[in-house]
Design a protein around this nucleic acid. Structure first.
Lengths: 192, 192
DNA sequence: GGGTCAACCAAGCAAGCGCTAGTGTAAACG
DNA sequence: CGTTTACACTAGCGCTTGCTTGGTTGACCC
């Protein structure tokens, strides 16, 4: 059994698992369904993962890790002003929601199914991601671009963004960047 | 077996079920757990509900029904201007999230576990609720209180509000009305 | 060319699942 | 009074669940 997501085989299995978890939900996805989707028998699954819980943790870790990486990259590449940074974060967030959609849906819906140890480990990743947001929002507040309670504003923004997985259809006319721009426009000062 | 949620006994059982569904999730809540929480044996449960699915439907119906009623009431009592109506809707929404918290968490997380018939029935209730929101947001757009794409704005607002169940702690310093006011302030035109 | 090792399979166990069948009982009804 | 009704019980059926065990295969290694 492998320790991390290093093995390419395991990475592929994780991707397949994410898809099934989205379709059926974690509890309703049986190890036999997972194995069939992966083209192996159910027993062989436990060569790659210690138990079913570990598959869930692997899925969520993969998604959160990518989101963090993309957000950091976006912050490096964007302009220095608060509005550029805010927009960059929103765009990066929505873009991961597209490319790693399955993993993120699982993270949002099945977080509570994680056992305490896995949750503790993954909480750090998530906290690091949310810290980026708070930093950007603090800067926007300081610059007067937005105003209000920093705690509430960041929670509202995260809510609006995460909720998109429920209704956003990438085949529709709107691009992720459209959504990001609209959200930023909604919460920033609107010059009459 | 009863047909609707008329029986007070059934209403009480539904309330208990909601609590367990939140704690454990629908799939992990067994009929034996439900029965124990209700003080009866597992077999007796099926005198009140046809099957486990019907319990889920009852929980969600109860919560959505109350939310719709509270929103309508709030719109009747509030002022006629767009800002008052927007604030009233936000307050009503957050207040139900408090009083019927369990039912709403279940509705948000376990919606996909509903079988197609129940989902179709409950979709009507939810659509009616969301229609109230779109109406209020349309008015706010027309009045120039907020601006942007009506579809996106309403989705963003719903996201921000529904996300509160993940982080809001009613024992903290903030009241639901505080949250509502802050949200309205965030998205309305900000006079410099 | 024997040893190592990741990857897989066949078979099945123990536990738990939703739900049913049949019965008992006390209150309500005509 | 006899009948009905609501509510609960006991007992268990048939099935699925996550996971284990013991063994096989083929590629690579010194």
């Amino acid at each position: 059994m492998n320790v991390m997501n290093e093995s390419p085989r395991r990475k592929e299995l994780t991707r397949l698992a994410a898809q099934l978890f989205v379709q059926e939900g974690f509890d309703r996805t049986t190890v036999r369904m997972l194995a069939q989707e992966m083209g192996i028998k159910s027993g062989s699954l436990f060569h790659h993962f210690r138990d079913k819980q570990e598959i869930l943790a692997a899925v969520i870790e993969e998604g959160t890790h990518n989101a963090l990486a993309m957000a950091r990259q976006a912050l490096v590449e964007c302009g220095p002003d608060a509005e550029s940074r805010l927009r960059a974060m929103a765009r990066a967030h929505l873009e991961t929601l597209l490319t790693d959609r399955n993993a993120h849906v699982v993270a949002l819906y099945e977080w509570r199914r994680l056992d305490p140890e896995a949750r503790a480990h993954l909480s750090h990743l998530r906290d690091a991601y949310e810290a980026l947001w708070e930093e950007v929002i603090d800067a926007a507040l300081a610059e007067g671009l937005i105003h209000g309670d920093r705690f509430l504003v960041s929670r509202f923004v995260m809510g609006a963004l995460n909720w998109t997985v429920r209704w956003y259809d990438p085949r529709g006319p709107r691009t992720p960047d459209d959504l990001a721009d609209e959200l930023v426009a909604m919460i920033t000062r609107h010059p009459a």
